[in-house]
Design a protein around this nucleic acid. Structure first.
Length: 156
DNA sequence: GCCAACGTTGGC
DNA sequence: GCCAACGTTGGC
């Protein structure tokens, strides 16, 4: 039995990895490694193949929802945590007892007109978005179906 | 570059 | 279990 499709927002700094990098990636797929926050990890564990992803550019000018992606592989162990040379190495996570997970997402499209953060703030229907909460830093967060629809409309 | 908000760590 | 110190995030 298939449950309804769910929606998420994932942040990335475009100077590190942008929606355009995703479009150019092999098979237009990337693994979302390096997440080292429990709440964000738990949201990734809740993702199902086919779920929608808003690809958000943080630390950008302007910060904006830049396009769409979709989940193509469910959460599995993030091996970058095992590598002492990796930026996101975490000795608490081992292949036997992994702590951190990643998912894989595939490019869907880049918005011709990315939807900037300050535009999102002006939309009454988006008042409850996690992204807009003061002090919110979650890099992976759920998005309501209504919010997803509104943002797609704003991107047209 | 600044700094507020947040999560984590570690001393006690 | 408390909380100060620290490192990070991310808008501005």
């Amino acid at each position: 039995m298939k449950t309804t499709r769910r929606y998420w927002l994932m942040k990335s700094e475009p100077s590190v990895f942008s929606i355009h990098d995703l479009a150019r990636a092999r098979d237009q797929v990337t693994s979302w490694d390096g997440v080292r926050n429990y709440q964000a990890r738990n949201y990734m564990r809740a993702m199902e193949v086919g779920d929608g992803v808003l690809f958000y550019h943080s630390n950008a000018d302007p910060p904006a929802v830049a396009g769409l992606a979709e989940v193509v592989r469910k959460a599995y162990a993030d091996h970058t945590a095992f590598d002492p040379k990796d930026k996101h190495y975490d000795p608490k996570s081992t292949p036997d007892q992994p702590i951190w997970d990643m998912v894989e997402i595939r490019f869907v499209r880049a918005f011709k007109r990315p939807v900037p953060l300050d535009t999102l703030r002006k939309v009454p229907g988006l008042k409850g978005m996690e992204l807009l909460r003061k002090g919110s830093r979650l890099s992976v967060q759920p998005v309501r179906a209504g919010e997803w629809k509104l943002i797609l409309k704003l991107a047209e």
